[in-house]
Simulated assay, not measured.
Amino acid sequence: MNLHKSDNPIFQRLRFVLVNTSRPGNIGAAARAMKTMGFSELVLVNPRFPDPANEPEAVAFASGALDILQSARIVGSVEEALEGCNFAAAVSARLREFSPPIVAPRALAAQLAGDAALHAAFLFGNERFGLPNEAVQKCNVLINIPANPAYSSLNLAQAVQVLAYECRTATPATPVLAPSGAEIGFQGMNADVTQIDGMFAHLEQALVAIEFLDPESPKKLMPRLKRLFSRTQLETEEVNILRGIARQILALKNKATQ
Rank of each mutant, 00 (worst) to 15 (best):
A110G: 03
A135S: 14
C167D: 09
E237H: 15
A93K: 11
P215Q: 01
L242I: 12
E235Y: 06
R48D: 11
P132C: 03
R23T: 04
R168G: 07
P215D: 08
E41A: 10
F124S: 06
P215L: 00
G84D: 09
S22H: 12
A62V: 07
C167K: 02
L66P: 02
E55Y: 01
L154P: 11
K226T: 04
V43N: 01
E55V: 06
F98A: 14
Q111W: 00
L252T: 10
R48E: 12
L142I: 09
E204V: 08
D214C: 10
A209M: 06
E41M: 01
G188S: 14
V78Q: 12
E57W: 01
V160M: 04
A116W: 02
D192V: 08
L95P: 04
P172V: 03
Q70P: 00
R106K: 15
L142M: 14
V103S: 13
T232G: 03
P146L: 02
A182D: 13
N140E: 14
E216L: 05
Y165T: 07
V162S: 08
A107H: 06
V17A: 05
P223C: 12
F16A: 04
A206F: 07
A246W: 01
N148G: 05
N155L: 03
A182R: 11
K226L: 03
F49N: 07
F129S: 15
A182T: 12
I249G: 05
V43L: 06
R227T: 10
M34W: 02
L203C: 04
R32S: 05
A121T: 09
R247M: 11
L228C: 00
I102W: 06
A72I: 11
V162Y: 07
Q258L: 10
T257L: 13
P218F: 01
V176W: 03
C85M: 14
V78D: 04
D192P: 06
G188M: 11
V19N: 00
T171W: 09
K255E: 12
A60E: 13
K226A: 05
N240D: 12
Y165P: 00
L250Y: 11
R13V: 10
N26D: 03
R224N: 14
I210D: 02
A104Y: 04
L3D: 00
A107V: 04
G125V: 05
L123A: 05
L163S: 06
P9F: 01
Q233S: 15
P50H: 07
D51N: 13
K138N: 07
V162A: 12
I245T: 04
P105Y: 02
L82I: 03
L163N: 09
A206G: 10
F229C: 06
R32L: 11
V75M: 13
N144S: 14
L234M: 15
A33D: 01
G28V: 02
N133H: 10
F39Q: 04
S217Q: 13
P215K: 03
K138P: 04
A121S: 15
E79V: 10
A62K: 07
C139F: 06
I27C: 08
P50S: 13
P172N: 02
L123K: 07
P132R: 09
L225P: 10
P52H: 07
Q248P: 00
